[in-house]
Design a protein around this nucleic acid. Structure first.
Length: 895
RNA sequence: GGGGGAGUAGCUCAGUUGGGAGAGCGCUGCGUUCGCAACGCAGAGGUCGAGGGUUCAAAUCCCUUCUCCUCCA
């Protein structure tokens, strides 16, 4: 039996023999294509070729492309696992012609591969061809004829179909064309509608007997409007065959899950769970979900997606959580999924070495994510139990759907688990209420998205880009060069000349030594000048693809479009930036060496002043690790290694095992910056020529950015010198202020802290004693107001809490009575009134402070036995205290 | 991008119309014990995420902001 690996490579080998260039699978995220959540078809990476934006590196290509389909009506995540042929992640085998061969060859080769190389029975194969039901687009008689003439397919098994099945379009406009499909009749046993009355198995029907194997798309039109199709100058072929399905057919497997693409993963799941074969058969859905999802999750992580609560990261999180959820159904109570990832990586590694390269990252992230989810489940249980208890206590039979939704919405507790737990107490839950709540949530999100959809497009730059083409960058070799002013833009308008009267002017100079902000390295600054004029450049950016734009203002004379200028980058800042950029590469490497291979760059900022590096790591970093990392980096610096740069194809770079950031596209020529023996990275930035130029790289800080991502900030060169000087200066100041030698400063500070603590305690003690003494004398002869012992006392310098302590003591010693205490601190008056419990019916402490506080310009209140107040007129305190006995007396009478 | 939650001692958390910042576990010391567990006593440890506002008074109310969790796009 052929393995899936053989099938994949036989497909590629077959087309290689027909002069096709093998192309690597693009990552699941393609940069610069915001319309795509994920790569969802083999053609995604070739889109610029079909649109005529890029020249293909080769006219014939063949590949196996990993694809994700998680949204849209054809694949709701919630259905995966229940259907035998839906997957979140699948591979699409395809052969491509970019303006080269056309229908005849595509049809012949497809037929030969299926019937001769792979030996599929000809009488079971059916073919479909396009015929427009509206008679607007010409029928594809061409394809029909080639099938008849060039293959030995049974002409009775060729069928015409309309737009829905056999016309392919990329979007509402753009390249499109008819397609022809090859279907296979797998026999009556595969029909899942045998019991449905009136069902007939047919091509493009609704049962599983006849399956589509291969779709050959012939791109020959460009749709410019609803009913306008123009012929394309060149015609392309785009074919796609799902690897999982062809594997199932060739391995004679009842479903895609019964192939060697999935079986080893499900075996691992069984081993880990310890379930019997019967258990496994009964829980096949769970096994399928886990097997499918671990494939998707592994590739997403490998392609640089991080679990998060937005966009792609959220899809990844949902996939992992769904897999874990189904894991709990078969008895898993702690993280297990990462172990199944190991199996998947092992079986896929011959075709996808990047999985092996990233295996530590993949399993690490999955483990921490599933761990987090198990924790969520654990924390949610008490909430569910609460919910059930309240439902039971109300005598209801049904748990509120809103509550179940809230449990899911707020705490992430899955509704199906809620349902199971509720069922144990004989409760159901209100599904329709739940669904309504979910719908409302979806509506709200969609509405908010729509209103934010109006995005401004910077047409002026794309316009200029079309006119001027790509600006040549000469800044790798020089920082000063002469170039021509190609365009000047101010206020979003193209102008001919500019003088000193405008700020924020944009210049396009070709060629230019100015580096445009990219890959985290910020744009160059400097000057451009003619013999008569000079402009200061504050920033450089790429406003459209290949269009480098210098932003600044004229400081002297007039600069005109067409002028030749000398463009000079600020050399010292450029050098400082280069030190930080090469330093970043060394840091990246050191992090991987010390912390592990799971470390992946997830953000970077390189300025002349400092460098900032964000990376994936799922734990805190110890001080010792920081020291080791810093040491590793500085070792590479002290070894003074010559930095090398090379231009090569993306494929070559990947073959050398160079870490690529995701987002590179087919045919891209990439620049590789390497420090031999230490680091090799794809990078367009400017670097030092020898690592020794970097000077000391000093890490300033390490912190967490979000779950699983950490940030390091560091300085190099003169900045670290300056930083060190600053530290030394601070230390010297401290040392001289404390009059203590540097090596005993810490000791000295500890001593002083202790002293301060002791002194302040003593002061507090003395103050309290002092007040106590005074109170003691007062306690000897308390005021008697209406038969109640009353202490009125004004202290000084006591805080509100010390006053309170004092009041407590007085209460305690009076046993029955009233105290009114006051203190002035920091120009404010504080009042405390205390009443012993036995008197609170007669006298409310709050009333006392409410009556007294206004006299010192304030207000107050509190409990019957204890109330506090404040005021900002300390000079009136004496008068207030003199009036206090009368006030309290009247309150006693009134109370 | 839109909603729902959370942020208080090293950890897990309580804190009820705004009026004494707490519990459990952990930590330190002392005691009981041959020793450990255990128990008893004593103690250390807090910018109540940050900033602003209202108030005589804010962990508590209002506004802004940061971080984390979570759902939806």
């Amino acid at each position: 039996m052929k393995t899936s690996h053989q099938i994949r490579s036989e497909f590629i080998e077959f087309f290689k023999k027909q002069s096709h260039t093998p192309v690597r699978s693009a990552p699941l995220v393609i940069q610069d294509d915001p319309t795509l959540l994920f790569t969802n078809a083999g053609m995604n990476q070739f889109k610029p070729v079909f649109l005529g934006k890029t020249e293909p590196a080769s006219r014939r290509a063949v590949n196996s492309q990993r694809c994700m389909r998680v949204s849209g009506k054809h694949n709701d995540l919630e259905e995966v696992g229940f259907s035998p042929h839906h997957h979140t992640l699948f591979e699409m085998l395809g052969n491509w012609s970019f303006g080269d061969y056309y229908k005849k060859e595509a049809i012949e080769w497809a037929w030969t591969l299926l019937t001769e190389v792979w030996g599929l029975p000809k009488d079971k194969l059916w073919v479909t061809v396009f015929k427009d039901e509206k008679s607007e687009i010409p029928d594809d008689t061409e394809a029909y004829d080639f099938w008849k003439k060039c293959t030995d397919v049974d002409p009775d098994q060729i069928r015409y179909f309309g737009r829905k099945d056999n016309f392919w379009e990329m979007g509402e406009t753009g390249p499109c064309g008819p397609c022809t499909e090859i279907h296979m009749d797998r026999g009556i046993d595969f029909c899942d509608k045998q019991n449905v009355a009136g069902h007939v198995c047919r091509v493009n029907g609704d049962c599983r007997r006849i399956v589509e194997l291969w779709n050959l798309v012939f791109i020959q039109y460009n749709r410019t409007g609803l009913s306008t199709l123009n012929d394309l100058p060149t015609q392309h072929v785009d074919t796609g065959m799902g690897l999982e399905r062809i594997t199932a057919v060739l391995q004679n497997a009842p479903s895609n899950y019964d192939t060697d693409l999935f079986i080893p993963i499900m075996n691992t799941v069984q081993d880990l769970s310890g379930q019997s074969d019967t258990d496994r058969a009964e829980n096949s859905v769970s096994y399928r979900v886990i097997a499918d999802h671990i494939r998707a999750a592994s590739f997403l992580l490998s392609d640089g997606i991080m679990p998060s609560n937005e966009w792609r990261g959220y899809v990844l999180r949902r996939i992992i959580r769904r897999a874990v959820r189904f894991g709990t159904k078969i008895g898993f109570q702690k993280p297990f999924l990462h172990d199944t990832a190991d199996t998947f990586i092992r079986i896929m590694s011959p075709s996808y070495p990047e999985l092996t390269d990233n295996s530590a990252h993949i399993t690490g992230m999955i483990k921490s994510e599933e761990h987090r989810f198990f924790k969520t489940l654990e924390q949610g249980l008490p909430l569910v139990n609460d919910l059930i208890q309240t439902t039971l206590s109300k005598g209801l039979k049904m748990v509120s759907g809103d509550a179940v939704f809230k449990l899911y919405d707020t705490w992430g507790f899955p509704p199906d688990i809620t349902r199971e737990i509720a069922a144990e107490s004989g409760l159901e839950f209100d599904e329709s209420e739940y669904k309504t709540a979910m719908e409302t949530q979806k509506m709200r999100a969609r509405k908010a998205w729509k209103s934010a959809e109006t995005q401004e497009d910077n047409t002026i730059w794309t316009e200029l880009q079309k006119q001027l083409g790509t600006v040549k960058f000469c800044g790798y070799d020089t920082t000063s060069d002469s170039g021509k002013v190609m365009a000047i833009v101010a206020n979003e308008t193209i102008i001919d000349a500019v003088s000193t009267d405008r700020r924020d002017v944009f210049f396009v100079i070709n060629p230019t030594p100015f580096y445009a902000e990219s890959g985290g390295q910020i744009g160059d600054t400097g000057y451009i000048e003619t013999p008569e004029a000079k402009a200061k450049i504050m920033d450089t950016r790429e406003m459209a693809e290949g269009l480098t734009v210098l932003k600044g203002y004229v400081i002297e004379g007039v600069i005109r479009c067409g002028d030749m200028v000398i463009a000079s980058v600020d050399q010292s800042l450029r050098n400082a930036t280069a030190r930080n950029h090469t330093g970043t590469h060394l840091l990246h490497n050191a992090l991987r060496m010390i912390l592990g291979d799971h470390v992946k760059q997830s953000g970077s900022l390189v300025t002349p002043q400092r460098l900032r590096f964000d990376f994936t790591h799922f734990a805190n970093i110890s001080r010792q690790d920081i020291i080791d990392i810093e040491k590793k980096v500085n070792e590479a610096i002290l070894n003074d290694i010559a930095v090398q740069t090379q231009q090569m194809s993306l494929d070559d770079a990947l073959d050398r095992g160079i870490t690529a950031l995701f987002g590179e596209k087919y045919g891209d020529s990439v620049r590789v910056v390497s420090v031999p023996g230490v680091s090799s990275e794809l990078c367009g930035g400017t670097h030092v020529s020898r690592t020794g130029e970097i000077g000391l790289l000093k890490i300033l800080s390490e912190s967490g950015i979000s779950a699983g991502v950490r940030r390091i900030e560091a300085v190099t060169g003169f900045e670290s010198l300056q930083k060190c000087n600053q530290w030394v200066a601070t230390l010297q100041t401290v040392s001289s202020t404390l009059k203590s030698p540097q090596d005993s400063i810490v000791e000295k500070i500890h001593k002083m802290q202790k002293q301060i603590r002791e002194l302040s305690r003593e002061i507090e003690h003395i103050k309290t004693i002092q007040s106590k003494n005074e109170i003691d004398s007062k306690l000897g002869s308390p005021l008697i107001l209406n038969g109640i012992k009353t202490i009125i006392y004004s202290a000084s310098g006591l805080q509100i809490n010390q006053l309170r302590d004092l009041a407590d003591q007085i209460k305690h010693r009076l046993k029955s009575g009233i105290a009114l205490l006051a203190s002035v601190t920091d120009d404010r008056v504080y009042l405390i009134a205390a009443v012993t419990r036995d008197l609170t019916d007669k006298v409310h402490a709050g009333k006392i402070v409410k009556a007294v506080a206004p006299l010192v310009g304030g207000n107050g209140g509190g409990r019957p036995d204890m109330a506090q107040a404040g005021g900002d007129q300390p000079e009136k305190l004496n008068d207030a205290m003199n009036e206090a006995p009368d006030i309290i007396a009247s309150i006693i009478n009134g109370g």
